[in-house]
Design a protein around this nucleic acid. Structure first.
Length: 424
RNA sequence: GGAGGCGUAGCCUAAUUGGCUAAGGCGUCGGCCUUGAAAGCCGAUGGGGUGCAAGCCCCGUGUGGGUUCGAGUCCCACCGCCUCCGCCA
């Protein structure tokens, strides 16, 4: 949710933002019109309520004086005002709800450091690490490597669940589990995160607070009977952990890490990444979330990105970091870095982590605030990032660590976790 | 799933048969005092509207409705927590 007061003061800022993101900017004027109406109604209702409060007091006084005629007269007047209030309140509620529905569809304001452009071609590469793997032989894609050794089963997954699901067996399944463990260990032991185990089903409000709803309902799996949603990322439970709470400035920043499966319908991605396990309806992810203050949130974002990068460095996987342009950024983000890992099957870099500062956008929706040392209460800034997408990390290892004989070497740091050095 | 109980501000706790400003304590912040601190004293400590401002007004007792001139208090629904029973990996 954007700040309505800032919108009143600087509507052009938001119109520009909408345009830069490729949204319809007309919604801003609609919101402002409704806002004006709302303020007028609010003033009117408030005045009437003040009058009613006055009458109520007079009734109490008249009763004490046992002036029955006066009591009758006042009650009559009070009834009249009450009726008027009811009418105006109903109007006000309607306008308010209408405005809320519009506001929930306005994306976050991009930070000034974000490149302006309509799509990913305006993204800016920030840095590269490592050099793309070179092979003395013709490297295979993971969708050939896995099935060849009978460890990745896409056909049977299709039988059970349809397209965009996979089954892993034996050493590959073990490697997936080891990656989760390795990432959690790194972030908790070396980067100071607190491990959290979260629910995978959440309420509609929870999805709304973190920004997935109402705009992206098509993207989420929903259990009709209870109106619960399967989380598309652990970001959802993590950024709502302190909804409605007032945190202390001294306890910030709070750094959380959670492993969870992620469930996504991938409704708008037909024909994209159809082979293998790069884009599945269910995948594992280790997610990093920060609760922090406005003064330091952008420095903290850099730290968060470096924590995600560290995973790739330890695994010795080549990657690059991209600063997303306004047109390519997600709805809730003010600024986003993507980390892309080198995938031989794509002969290019592929997204493996997305790290964003949402500033107060999500916190405003979930009413997550903190009390400053001087007593002032303010919304926290919320950061989130993958550290990393586990399935894609597995893919990257398979493809980058493959050997001429078709086997896959296990990255050094993972050997203690899995207890073997080569797959199969 | 069934029965009962509970939900007040950052925290803890009050509020007559519905009636003046939700009382009090703790914590936090600011000020006075002090060489510094503690103690003590004074003030502030949820959201919104309006106004250049001082200020004025409204809302806020888990959430949403209802009854009433007037609701923390009465009624309904929902959410959450606790206790017990049932079921269950």
């Amino acid at each position: 949710m954007i700040d309505i007061r800032l919108l009143r003061k600087e509507p052009d800022l938001f119109k520009k933002s909408m345009k830069n993101r490729g949204y319809d900017e007309g919604i801003i004027d609609e919101v402002l019109t409704l806002d004006e109406e709302w303020r007028k109604l609010t003033a009117d209702v408030n005045n009437l309520r003040a009058e009613r409060n006055k009458i109520s007091k007079e009734v109490a006084e008249a009763k004490k004086e046992e002036d029955r005629a006066k009591v009758e007269k006042l009650i009559e007047k009070g009834k009249e005002i009450g009726q008027k209030i009811k009418e105006l309140e109903e109007k006000q509620r309607k306008v308010e709800e209408e405005q809320r529905q519009l506001l929930l569809r306005v994306p976050n304001l991009p930070h000034e450091s974000v490149p302006i452009g309509e799509d990913e071609t305006y993204n800016v590469e920030v840095r590269r690490w490592g050099t793309p793997s070179k092979f003395s032989f013709d490297p295979k894609a993971h969708w050939d490597l896995g099935p060849d050794m009978n460890l990745l089963d896409i056909e049977r997954a299709g039988k059970l669940s349809g397209s965009r699901f996979v089954i892993l067996y034996g050493k590959l399944a073990r490697l997936e589990r080891a990656l989760i463990d390795f990432m959690l260990d790194l972030h908790t032991k070396e980067h100071g995160y607190k491990e959290v185990w979260v629910p995978h089903l959440v309420k509609r409000e929870t999805m709304t607070w973190s920004g997935q709803l109402p705009k992206f309902e098509e993207e989420a799996y929903n259990t009709k009977k209870d109106d619960l949603f399967l989380i598309p990322t652990a970001e959802v439970p993590l950024v709502n952990l302190h909804a409605g709470e007032i945190l202390k400035e001294d306890e910030l920043p709070l750094k959380y890490v959670a492993y969870s499966p992620c469930y996504r319908r991938e409704a708008g991605s037909y024909g994209k990444d159809v082979r293998g396990m790069v884009r599945n309806h269910q995948f594992d992810k280790v997610e990093l979330v920060w609760y922090t203050t406005p003064e330091r949130s952008y420095d903290d974002l850099e730290a968060l990105v470096s924590h995600a990068e560290e995973v790739l460095k330890r695994l010795n996987l080549p990657y690059r970091v991209i600063l997303l342009s306004t047109g390519d950024m997600g709805f809730t983000a003010a600024k986003t870095y993507d980390i892309e890992v080198w995938l031989p099957s794509y002969d290019f870099y592929k997204e493996i982590s997305s790290c964003s500062n949402t500033e107060a956008f999500q916190a405003r929706r979930s009413k997550t605030r903190f009390r400053r040392r001087d007593g002032k209460v303010e919304h926290v800034h919320l950061l989130n990032g993958s550290g990393l997408a586990v399935g894609r990390t597995l893919v990257a290892i398979m493809e980058n660590y493959q050997q001429p004989d078709g086997s896959i070497k296990v990255p050094e740091v993972l050997i203690p976790y899995v207890g073997f050095e080569v797959i199969p």
